[in-house]
Write a protein that binds this DNA or RNA. Structure first.
Lengths: 226, 226
DNA sequence: ATAAAAGTGTGATATAAATCACATTATTCT
DNA sequence: AGAATAATGTGATTTATATCACACTTTTAT
């Protein structure tokens, strides 16, 4: 870990690009950069948090360990902020963040973050925009969970990986079958079966972790209807 | 509907109390107040929105009509804002808001709202705090949906009505059985059965819409475990 | 290289809760 | 007031999907 020179950072957030030189100095003084390898925990459920986290590069999973099952709430791809609601709120992490690819992240002290909100309206504005986008995304997830059954949810997440995370119709799944189950709120066995079904129908081609989407339009139909 | 004098309003939001006199005048010029009776729609899913809505008094339900079922996303009690993420985002309402009690609301033009964010950091700060609280609440709802089965979710919502909405251990349900089903993501019949079961166990006393919580600690246990 | 551990696929069974069906009770309307 | 309509309760049946059980495969460790 090292204190960063935010002014010279090439991976500024949409909010941070609005900061003046002097404000960047303020930020730099309480901003610490860290690198996480695949599998590393960035922060842990139930731990106290007094930092906002900005993901510069990489991919993480947000997960909740509940009494019944573990849920992967969502995958978050850099660039984005993590932990704003928690750190602005009750300061106790409601979920853990674990890197599923090599990830670089900046830890920003909450007081500095609040100070920047106080002094720079353009900064605040971008934070508000990000919070709003998050809320709509989470909303969609929650609606999908109720409206669709497992087949549809699985299809939705495969499309999300293809369209938003990897921007390619073939990629290596960053999660094993059990984690995919946690992501689509189902069981390992069901996910295994449904992936086989999709392959039998020639909608996808799957070989271990390598996945190729063959018939995207049918997958989209399943995502909507199923 | 009438253009309001925001300066003299006794129901200012936590954000608005930070506004200076001149800023209140700006707000007042593009702020329209309206009264909604029980059952009235405040805004409709799929419609365009260029207003932020501030609920001064009352109670509303937010609902999504999906292909499979209707969901009541949540009840929102005044004072609170509605529609910030939508109006800041793609401007299309992802859900409807319907008054379930007499409700008064202010419609604020999005450009005025953005202007206030730009000129008053304390205003922005309070908006950020409200967005953060919303995100955590929605998060909890989503986790509960997966971790608990219907019995637990029903108990959770009864407690929410008692603790947060009515602040009393007896009240009239603002929703019929079918709407309660939409709220707990279940079916009318199941809700009906489970309410009877709770009554049989002397955990609640229910007579039509009137509900009295008799054994709160057992209800809390069901809410956590069930 | 071999053993141990972790991950995966697939059939059989169990289960929570939806759906169906219909009787009963409220509420609304003329 | 009486008819029509909506809301509710409750049993029977169905269904999606979890869970169990176990074989097979891949990865990791010694």
């Amino acid at each position: 870990m090292k204190t960063s020179s935010c002014a010279s950072c090439l991976l500024k957030s949409k909010a941070v690009v609005n900061l003046a030189e002097q404000e960047l100095t303020v930020l730099g003084k309480s901003c610490v950069e860290a690198v996480f390898e695949k599998g590393d925990t960035i922060f842990k459920q139930d731990a106290l948090s007094s930092n906002i986290i900005y993901l510069q590069t990489g991919l993480v999973k947000l997960l909740v360990k509940g009494p019944q099952r573990t849920q992967i709430l969502r995958l978050k791809k850099a660039p984005c902020y993590l932990g704003i609601p928690t750190t602005m709120g009750d300061k106790i992490n409601h979920y853990s963040a674990v890197a599923i690819e090599k990830t670089t992240a900046c830890f920003v002290d909450i007081n500095t973050f609040k100070e920047l909100i106080r002094i720079n309206p353009d900064f605040s504005y971008e934070i508000i925009v990000e919070l709003c986008r998050n809320e709509l995304e989470q909303f969609n997830r929650c609606v999908k969970l109720v409206q669709n059954q497992v087949f549809g949810r699985l299809a939705t997440h495969l499309l999300d990986l293809s369209d938003n995370i990897y921007q390619s119709n073939q990629f290596d799944l960053p999660l094993n079958r059990s984690e995919i189950a946690d992501l689509v709120c189902s069981s390992r066995e069901t996910v295994s079966r449904l992936l086989s079904d999709l392959a039998k129908e020639s909608i996808i081609d799957i070989n271990g972790k390598h996945l190729k989407i063959i018939d995207k339009s049918r997958l989209e139909k399943i995502s909507e209807k199923g």
